[in-house]
């Protein structure tokens, strides 16, 4: 958006639109993850590889899961961005990850650094496909790395979240 000789971008973050002046509020070379974390303090966005290989920085942009370390903040002009901070307090996916302890699978996280990224990827996937099969979950979340190796429990948590959604409906 051109405004006299100032260039301003407008992003809706977690439900609220805000304007950012390029050069003052955001740099042209600044990644979306940097804007969200360092300037807006949304630390649920995690940075682990900073090269699009691990999914820890996943946010939802116009309904789709994106890697916020791999796009510039200015590319999000006129977009709606949702970070984990924007989810409802009783979000069903968050709850399913937090509470997974069904015998045979372990917990859905250990250190928890990758968890917000998995949750956001799963959210976006469930929005498009509310009843994924196990294979669809595994494929859909294969861009995220959990070094603690909690993959079976993560799959279980997403299945539980999906079933919970079905029951609600």
């Amino acid at each position: 958006m051109k405004n006299s000789n100032r260039e301003i971008i407008k992003i809706k973050v977690n439900g609220t639109w805000a304007e950012y002046e390029i050069g003052r509020d955001v740099e042209p070379s600044e990644t979306l993850s940097h804007l969200l974390r360092e300037r807006l303090g949304l630390t649920g966005v995690k940075l682990a590889c900073d090269q699009g290989a691990c999914g820890a920085c996943t946010v939802i942009l116009n309904g789709k899961a994106v890697l916020s370390c791999m796009m510039l903040a200015v590319e999000a002009d006129e977009c709606e961005v949702m970070t984990i901070e924007g989810l409802e307090a009783d979000d069903s996916v968050v709850k399913a990850f937090a509470e997974q302890c069904e015998p045979g699978y372990g917990t859905a996280m250990q250190c928890g650094y990758c968890t917000p990224g998995f949750v956001m990827t799963a959210k976006a996937m469930l929005n498009e496909n509310p009843k994924p099969t196990r294979e669809e979950i595994e494929y859909g979340l294969s861009g995220n790395i959990c070094r603690c190796g909690c993959y079976p429990a993560i799959t279980k948590a997403v299945q539980n979240a999906a079933e919970g959604t079905r029951e609600d409906k």
Partner: peptide, 26 residues
């Protein structure tokens, strides 16, 4: 068999790691 005591803060992104406690704005 129980959920982790920190399962919730880890799942909702509120658990704070070094990077989250050392922002320029803090």
């Amino acid at each position: 068999y129980k959920p982790k005591i920190d399962g919730r803060v880890k799942a909702n992104g509120k658990a704070e790691f070094l990077d989250d406690l050392t922002l320029g704005i803090q």
